[in-house]
Design a protein around this nucleic acid. Structure first.
Lengths: 119, 119
DNA sequence: GGACTACTACGATAAGCATCGTAGTACGGC
DNA sequence: GCCGTACTACGATGCTTATCGTAGTAGTCC
């Protein structure tokens, strides 16, 4: 018993809602914030394992943490620690099972709007 | 000049955002409220011309007015006066042009969730 | 162990929003 | 013109939330 249970990179556990507790209204609300929608767009585009520090958002670190927590607690993203970094990925499987096509259509809509407004 | 411009049922004009000003984030936020989502579901199911008083929501009239205004100002519904009644309809054409499939997918997701949770 | 990195927790603040009650306006019918 | 119906506008209230700064924790590397 030198160390009771090292657990290494898993000691910091993050609470995720199980699939059956994910609510549509909460997901929509999570996606309705411009900052969070851009995070989700970047996650969808840039593969599925991005660290928090990869995102360069025009807010402080505290606020970034807040937005990632909202996304995680709504069931939109999954977060795991890997060393000092926290890796983020979309819960595509769960969302597609619950709300088929929703994530895709929202991402498509966001892309169209960005193309229309941003150039 | 008996009457300068009677306008009859059109004197009370309601401000609607033009199609090109409808923003995805605003639409998602409008749909993220349970009360408003149920209004939209009922509009989608019950044809497209329902008066405000048709809805029996567990809130006061003032609050109902507020929710309908949020839906109108976000671009989700269209409202016109017809006599003393105010008729409501989804802006399906505009939404489908801007965000193809979005409204349908959200309504489908809401239906699935209702079936899963409500029975 | 000590320094550095990455992220978090907590408290504060200011803005937003869902809700209500009351008072008021527009329209239709008598 | 008068009354009832349908909806609105306004102000208040209490809750949620987006933001920040500071202080702190967990992990990596030397």
């Amino acid at each position: 018993m030198t160390t009771p249970a090292p657990v290494s990179a898993g000691s910091r556990r993050l609470p995720h809602p199980p699939r059956e507790e994910i609510r549509l209204e909460t997901v929509l609300q999570a996606l309705s914030d411009p900052m969070r929608l851009s995070i989700v767009r970047e996650l969808a585009a840039g593969g599925d394992e991005l660290s928090c520090s990869h995102f360069d958002l025009p807010v402080t670190k505290s606020t970034t943490t807040h937005h990632f927590r909202v996304l995680r607690e709504s069931g939109v993203i999954r977060q795991v620690y890997r060393g000092t970094a926290k890796m983020n990925g979309l819960r595509t499987d769960d969302l597609d099972a619950l709300f088929p096509g929703l994530l895709g259509t929202v991402l498509d809509a966001a892309g169209r709007q960005a193309a229309r407004l941003g150039g």
